[in-house]
C-alpha cells in the first residue's frame, strides 16, 4: 500500500517552500502533490520517495504531519482510462473521498491516487479486475 504524507500548512507566503526546502535537504523526491485550500490553512498531500523520513524531518521542524495509506492504481494514459477504473468502483458502490492523478510520461502510464474508507476491499477489487495497485517503491520505479 502506498503512503501519502499530509502536511498542515498556514495559508501565507513562505510556508509551502519551507516544506519543500526540508524535503530537498533530505534528498527526498516529490512524485505528486496537491493542496486543498481551507481559508486560513491548507492541507498538502504528497507522494514522496521516502515517506517515513519525510514525516520525521517535517515533524522535527514543528510541522503537523501524518502518514495515511492511499490506493494508488496504475491505469493506461488514454481516453477512457480513468473512466474504466471508476466504473468498477461505482458498480461496487465504493465512494471516493478524495483523489488526484498524475502521468508518468516515459511509461505512458497514469497513476490515480484515492482516499477510500474501505481500502482493503477496494484493493482486492482492483487486483481482481487486473489493475495494478502500487506500493511506495513502485511509484518511484515507474
Amino acid at each position: 500500500m502506498a503512503e501519502q504524507l499530509s502536511v498542515f500548512i498556514d495559508n501565507r507566503p513562505g510556508r509551502l517552500n519551507a516544506v519543500t526546502g526540508i524535503l530537498r535537504d533530505q534528498q527526498i523526491n516529490i512524485r505528486a502533490m496537491t493542496i486543498a485550500d481551507h481559508r486560513d490553512f491548507g492541507v498538502a498531500k504528497l507522494l514522496v520517495s521516502d515517506p517515513a523520513l519525510a514525516q520525521q524531518a517535517l515533524a522535527e521542524h514543528g510541522f503537523a504531519v501524518a502518514l495515511q495509506p492511499v490506493l494508488a492504481v496504475a491505469i493506461e494514459d488514454r481516453p477512457g482510462g480513468l473512466h474504466d477504473l471508476l466504473e468498477i468502483l461505482a458498480a461496487h458502490q465504493i465512494n471516493v473521498l478524495d483523489a488526484y492523478g498524475f502521468v508518468v510520461a516515459p511509461s505512458r502510464q497514469a497513476i490515480w491516487c484515492m482516499t477510500i474508507a474501505d481500502l482493503a476491499e477496494a484493493t482486492r477489487l482492483m487486483t481482481e479486475q487486473g489493475l495494478r495497485v502500487l506500493k511506495d517503491r513502485d511509484l518511484y520505479a515507474l
Partner: peptide, 11 residues
C-alpha cells in the same frame, strides 16, 4: 501536531 490525522474535513 500530535493529534493531526491528515484529514482536512476533521479540521
Amino acid at each position: 501536531a500530535r493529534l493531526f490525522t491528515g484529514n482536512p474535513r476533521a479540521l
